[in-house]
Design a protein around this nucleic acid. Sequence first.
DNA 1: ATATTTTGTAAGCTACCGCTTACTTTATCA
DNA 2: TGATAAAGTAAGCGGTAGCTTACAAAATAT
Lengths: 194, 194
Amino acid sequence: MPRPSQIDEQRKKLLPIVCQTFSELGYRRTTTAELAQRCEVRENILYRLWPDKKAMFLAAIDDIFQSRADKWEQILIDLPSPESRVERLIAYEAEHQGEFGFYRVIFTALAETDDNEMRTALIRMYRQFHKLVSQQIATGRESDRDRLTVNDAAWGLIGLATISNVIVELNLLGPRQRNQMFASVAQALVRDMV
Amino acid sequence: MPRPSQIDEQRKKLLPIVCQTFSELGYRRTTTAELAQRCEVRENILYRLWPDKKAMFLAAIDDIFQSRADKWEQILIDLPSPESRVERLIAYEAEHQGEFGFYRVIFTALAETDDNEMRTALIRMYRQFHKLVSQQIATGRESDRDRLTVNDAAWGLIGLATISNVIVELNLLGPRQRNQMFASVAQALVRDMV
DNA sequence: ATATTTTGTAAGCTACCGCTTACTTTATCA
DNA sequence: TGATAAAGTAAGCGGTAGCTTACAAAATAT
């Protein structure tokens, strides 16, 4: 007799706006008032869709990763040859880095890793991400090419240092594994310079 | 006739505690009350040392980077041969990643890049950091070694993606340069796999 | 039509944040 | 010793955050 709930539909409808807001402002600076305003609803309506602000943020993390993965699939849909897939992904990522504020969300999440839900959401995301990347580069191997400049290698090392910190923070690898990984990648980069 | 000001000394004395707190909690979660408590002074005393909370944070960024650079210098002090320097640094960093919460601070700062002071502090820091790394790897070149596993290469790529986002966020490189850098490093990593 | 539940509106509550003010005590140097 | 400014104490102010409550409007199934 009652009217049927449309909570799921509303959640799905508002989630992109929530993602966008967190991507711009990060976790702490995003207020529930701001979210409500951008979604063009009142705050209490958001609180009927998610139990609290953190749940909204966690939903955003999952969604942002998922759409990224979907994008990759879409890009690779007509490229069956394994060799060209990696090259295609590299080209795409090189072009579109930072376009969706994905890492803004990740960075602010990383400041909240003493919260357990936040932590597990991040761990899950990084594991999935790493698996995805591994699968892709496992299939297609590259032919040779020019070598690295010192400048490029330095950026590579700083990126490596960054992700290493994330790995420590989230315990994605044990100390020995991480240590070896760091040394291997660092040496590969240094070794590859012109 | 008055008593001499010891503001500089106090600043220097409290800065490590301030750094430690920001490293644990990040920017937004660190309250001035918390800072005061850890420093074992009242809040208004902190406000006599720095104009506002942001200034405390900026001071922390500078100090954290500086102590990192000092550490490197100290490590290399008795290693004049260029070849061993890089290897030594790689070994050190592999071992001590994430030990000082440096990237916690950086991550939270990255959520505030629409603030101009925050932005310039980060840009300066990354430029110095990159310069430091470049100088080191420019001097010592490596002999050959084993090659990368798929897993290690995947982490390297994720690190590269991360730093690329930072580069976009802070405009550390132009789009074309960044694009090329990304592709070069990514290909070097993929190329190097077993 | 009407009972029932969802949807929407408006207001406000509690807690805390960054920062300030008013004041007392302490240390220095003429 | 005493004038002077620094160092320390205590309280609180304005603003806002996350979240809740109370209530009216709307829509469905009987």
